[in-house]
Measured scan of single mutants.
Amino acid sequence: MEVRTIKVFTTVDNINLHTQVVDMSMTYGQQFGPTYLDGADVTKIKPHNSHEGKTFYVLPNDDTLRVEAFEYYHTTDPSFLGRYMSALNHTKKWKYPQVNGLTSIKWADNNCYLATALLTLQQIELKFNPPALQDAYYRARAGEAANFCALILAYCNKTVGELGDVRETMSYLFQHANLDSCKRVLNVVCKTCGQQQTTLKGVEAVMYMGTLSYEQFKKGVQIPCTCGKQATKYLVQQESPFVMMSAPPAQYELKHGTFTCASEYTGNYQCGHYKHITSKETLYCIDGALLTKSSEYKGPITDVFYKENSYTTTIK
């Protein structure tokens, strides 16, 4: 009895394709271990004539594949690729409408935090270190965002349907971005203890939790000093293409032309909904596939993004 075979390709990165001759009487799992086709788990399936010449994702289970996976995804987590594939199996079914010149995501599976993050990423200057993220990001900007969303979920250790947080998501993504040249110098002034300067680099240099107003941050924000008295913390120097200011959701007025974009969060910790506000020729609110415009805006804002380049204080 002759062994019926077909020729397929296996890959971990969709760049390096490895030619395989597979036995049609055995499952993919018996031949390769966990195997995925377009995100779908085909591990328990036997090869079919229609699979001839198709590319299958496999887990990096030998040295060659491990090197290829690390170079593309910059992670050695053995569960990463499987999590990416199972997320992709959902995100490829989502709709990605162009809204006001940006790629958004039609609401499904509690994905409003991903839509808000995706919209924000198209408006701030950011370059990702893992080629996987950078490639998928370019495709997302062009309207094909399924891979990018699935990668975000995998890097953030999230599953489809789980509630997510924009600030946490951005923080994970910033860790995989090139923020080497970003720098922030802060000064804390206390009447009792004097003053202390701190220099922050990388992710810490672009994120701040405690106030939404970048102007206020430049002037000074009140913080408790270690001595128990009130101290003032203010920005001395900022070198970065953008800054992200966050605070627990509270009524906040966004003035046209003073910011790049913002995240609105309605609801409580267990259950809520994100919308995205962007400042173009007027203010726009993007909620999944829905767009509304207004000249002014007041609502429960939790993150505001500002364009920056270089700032030095005039406070002496």
Rank of each mutant, 00 (worst) to 15 (best):
E2R: 12
E2L: 11
E2M: 12
R4W: 11
I6F: 08
I6C: 15
V8H: 05
F9W: 13
F9C: 10
T11V: 06
V12M: 15
V12P: 09
N14T: 08
N14I: 10
L17G: 07
T19G: 13
V21N: 14
V21T: 13
V22P: 10
D23N: 15
S25I: 07
M26Q: 06
M26V: 11
T27H: 12
G29R: 06
Q31P: 06
Y36F: 15
D38K: 13
D41N: 15
V42E: 08
T43M: 12
T43V: 08
T43D: 09
I45N: 11
K46M: 07
P47E: 05
P47T: 05
S50V: 12
G53I: 07
K54F: 14
T55K: 15
T55W: 08
V58T: 11
L59K: 14
P60T: 09
N61T: 14
L65R: 11
E68W: 00
A69P: 06
F70K: 14
F70Q: 15
Y73N: 02
H74L: 13
T75W: 04
D77Y: 05
S79T: 08
S79W: 12
F80G: 02
G82F: 09
R83A: 10
Y84K: 04
Y84G: 03
Y84A: 05
Y84W: 04
M85A: 06
A87N: 08
H90K: 15
H90T: 13
H90E: 13
K92V: 11
K92P: 03
K93Q: 10
W94A: 05
Y96G: 05
Q98E: 11
Q98A: 07
Q98N: 11
V99E: 04
N100M: 15
G101S: 07
T103C: 07
S104P: 02
I105S: 04
K106S: 10
D109F: 04
N111R: 04
N111I: 04
L114P: 01
L114F: 05
L114K: 02
A115R: 00
A117Y: 03
L119K: 04
T120W: 01
L126C: 09
F128M: 05
N129V: 08
P131M: 05
Q134S: 14
Q134P: 03
D135H: 10
D135Y: 10
A136V: 02
Y137C: 08
Y138A: 12
R139I: 11
R139F: 08
R141M: 11
A142Q: 15
G143C: 05
E144I: 07
E144K: 11
A146Q: 09
N147Y: 10
F148P: 02
F148E: 01
F148W: 03
F148M: 10
F148I: 11
C149Y: 03
I152P: 00
I152A: 11
L153W: 04
L153I: 09
A154R: 02
Y155M: 00
Y155I: 05
C156M: 12
N157T: 06
N157G: 09
V160F: 05
V160E: 02
G161A: 05
G161T: 05
E162T: 06
E162P: 05
E162S: 10
L163V: 09
L163W: 06
D165P: 02
D165C: 15
D165S: 15
T169W: 02
M170L: 09
S171D: 06
S171Y: 13
Y172P: 02
L173K: 03
L173C: 06
F174N: 00
H176Q: 13
H176I: 06
N178A: 14
L179S: 01
D180N: 06
D180F: 12
D180G: 11
S181N: 09
C182E: 02
C182F: 05
K183M: 14
V185T: 12
N187I: 13
V189P: 02
G194V: 04
G194R: 05
G194Y: 02
T198Q: 12
T199Q: 09
T199I: 15
L200E: 11
K201I: 13
V206E: 00
M207R: 06
M207L: 07
M207A: 08
G210S: 02
T211W: 02
L212D: 01
L212K: 04
L212N: 01
S213R: 04
S213P: 00
Y214Q: 00
Q216W: 05
F217W: 05
K218P: 01
I223H: 10
P224S: 12
T226N: 11
C227A: 01
C227I: 00
T232L: 12
L235H: 01
V236C: 11
E239C: 13
E239G: 02
E239T: 12
S240P: 00
S240W: 00
S240L: 01
P241D: 08
M244V: 07
M244G: 00
M245A: 03
S246H: 03
S246N: 01
P248Q: 09
P248M: 09
Q251C: 09
L254K: 01
H256A: 14
G257S: 06
G257A: 08
C261G: 00
C261S: 01
A262W: 00
A262R: 00
E264G: 06
Y265V: 04
T266I: 13
T266A: 13
G267R: 04
Y269A: 14
Q270W: 14
Q270N: 12
Q270I: 13
K275R: 13
K275M: 05
H276R: 00
T278M: 15
K280W: 08
K280L: 11
K280Q: 12
K280S: 09
T282D: 10
C285T: 09
I286S: 01
D287H: 01
G288A: 02
L291M: 07
T292K: 07
T292Q: 13
K293V: 14
S294G: 08
S295G: 11
S295V: 09
Y297I: 05
P300R: 07
I301V: 08
I301A: 02
D303H: 01
F305P: 00
F305Q: 01
Y306H: 00
K307Y: 15
E308Q: 07
E308C: 10
N309P: 08
S310P: 09
S310E: 09
T312D: 15
T312A: 15
T313E: 13
T313C: 11
T313I: 11
I315G: 08
K316D: 10
K316H: 15
